[in-house]
Simulated assay, not measured.
Amino acid sequence: MDLAVIDQTKDGVSQYHQDLVRAVLDYAGRYLKLPDNTEMSVTFMNNDEIHRYNKTYRGIDKPTDVISFAIEEDGDDFPVLPDEEMDEELAKNIGDILVSVDIIASQAEYLGHSYERELGFLVVHGFLHLNGYDHMQGDAEEKEMFDLQRKILDDYGLRR
């Protein structure tokens, strides 16, 4: 997976945590059998910045833990239909995930698990949204998404 990790935090995100995000999302991508050339980004930020995004794009006037911006590919941007071989070579950008490092820390403490577990939980949660999973459409969809999320994290080694 071609993953851009962007650090917009005041204090900086450690290389260890950036590498963990890369490894967890690479694992999740293989788990979902995404093509190796799948592209996406994860941006770390503080509460004040994610608050602005949450208010602007979701109409919610407070910080949140994670926001996903999926890129819908309707084919409108590419007027010539590629053949199968060309289609396999074209990278597919699935979108962007924004994560608040402030909320990772507070939620990990509140839930009694590690910062790494919470970080993994949030990026996999956002990743699943980018891949069409949704927990807001009903109980069956919520169960499917959260079961898959838990399975990916447990299999990777970030158990609760």
Rank of each mutant, 00 (worst) to 15 (best):
F121W: 05
N46H: 06
F78R: 13
L98T: 01
Y27D: 08
K143H: 12
H125Q: 05
P63M: 06
G126P: 00
K92S: 08
A70F: 00
I103G: 02
I67R: 01
S114I: 09
E88V: 04
V21P: 09
I67H: 04
D48S: 14
V99F: 00
G29A: 04
E85Q: 07
G157C: 09
V99Q: 01
L32W: 04
L3P: 08
I94P: 01
E89Y: 08
I67A: 03
D26Q: 09
L34N: 06
D96C: 03
L148F: 02
L98N: 02
L111G: 09
E49G: 15
G59Q: 06
F44V: 04
G75A: 06
I94M: 00
L32T: 03
E73Y: 08
V123S: 01
R159S: 11
T43D: 05
S68R: 03
A91N: 08
D2T: 13
S114E: 11
F78T: 11
D102S: 11
N47G: 04
L130E: 00
L32D: 02
K143F: 14
D65K: 05
D87K: 09
A4Q: 10
A91K: 07
N47V: 04
S41A: 07
V66C: 06
E144F: 06
E142D: 08
R150C: 13
V101I: 13
N131H: 02
H129W: 01
D36F: 12
A23C: 14
P82C: 03
L148M: 12
L25H: 04
E118Q: 12
N37K: 12
G95F: 03
I97W: 01
